[in-house]
Computed example of a mutant assay.
Amino acid sequence: MTHDATQGAIRSSASRQVRIAWGVLSVFLLVWAVFEAVKYGGWVIAAVVAGIVVPDLSFLAGLSGPHQHGRLSPKAVPLYNLLHRPVVAVLVMLSCLIPDSPAVAIPLFNFGLVWLQHIASDRAFGFGLRTAEGWQR
């Protein structure tokens, strides 16, 4: 897909039904995460906050140098795309099965849960993966 710089950012071309499905999943995951944070407190709350923020830390990799509105620096795209793939968040959730300690496993699961919620909400709002040039696909 080519992109004309005068157009600005392009949002996802996903159908309305797909975006609604992502939205429903996002709300479900958010309710689940809030329930878990209230239930466990402590480190789970910290893990939930981290899960919201971590996927967008990839933007920091592209802060240096000039950029256009709506375009991510091409050097930040691989990290951004990796952190915005649902399979990565699911693998983090499944990694909670490795430690024997619930003190580690429960926050780890919730970190992945909110990370997945972040991705689902991005998709619901039309923000998907980026092209190699940094534009929305």
Results as ranks from 00 to 15, higher is better:
A9Q: 13
A9I: 11
I10C: 08
I10N: 12
I10R: 15
A14C: 01
R16Q: 11
R16T: 12
V18Y: 02
V18Q: 15
V18G: 08
R19Q: 10
R19T: 04
W22K: 07
W22M: 03
G23C: 05
V24T: 08
L25F: 08
F28T: 13
L29C: 05
L29K: 06
L29N: 03
L29D: 06
L29V: 08
L30Q: 09
L30C: 13
V31M: 12
A33W: 00
V34N: 01
V34D: 03
A37I: 05
V38C: 05
K39F: 12
Y40D: 10
Y40F: 15
G41P: 09
G41M: 03
G42A: 15
G42N: 14
V44L: 11
V44I: 04
I45F: 12
A47I: 06
V48P: 02
V48T: 14
V49E: 09
G51D: 03
G51C: 09
I52N: 12
V54A: 14
P55F: 07
P55V: 02
L57A: 00
L57Y: 07
L57G: 12
L57T: 10
S58T: 12
S58Q: 09
S58A: 15
F59W: 13
S64V: 08
S64R: 15
S64A: 15
S64C: 01
P66W: 08
P66S: 14
P66C: 00
P66N: 14
Q68M: 12
H69Q: 14
H69N: 11
H69Y: 12
G70P: 00
R71P: 03
R71W: 00
S73P: 05
S73G: 10
P74W: 07
P74N: 09
K75H: 11
K75F: 10
K75W: 04
K75Q: 15
A76Q: 11
P78D: 02
P78Y: 04
P78N: 09
L79M: 13
N81A: 06
N81W: 00
V87D: 10
V87S: 14
V88Q: 06
A89T: 01
A89S: 11
V90I: 15
V90S: 00
V90D: 06
L91R: 01
V92G: 00
V92H: 04
L94I: 06
L94S: 01
S95P: 06
S95H: 04
S95N: 03
I98E: 02
D100W: 13
D100P: 00
V104M: 13
V104P: 07
A105I: 04
I106A: 02
P107D: 07
L108I: 03
N110M: 04
F111N: 06
F111A: 00
G112K: 01
G112Y: 03
V114A: 00
V114N: 05
L116K: 09
L116W: 01
Q117M: 15
I119G: 04
S121P: 06
R123D: 02
R123Q: 14
A124M: 12
A124S: 15
F125W: 13
F125A: 15
F125N: 12
F125I: 13
F127T: 11
L129M: 11
R130E: 07
R130C: 06
A132P: 05
E133Q: 15
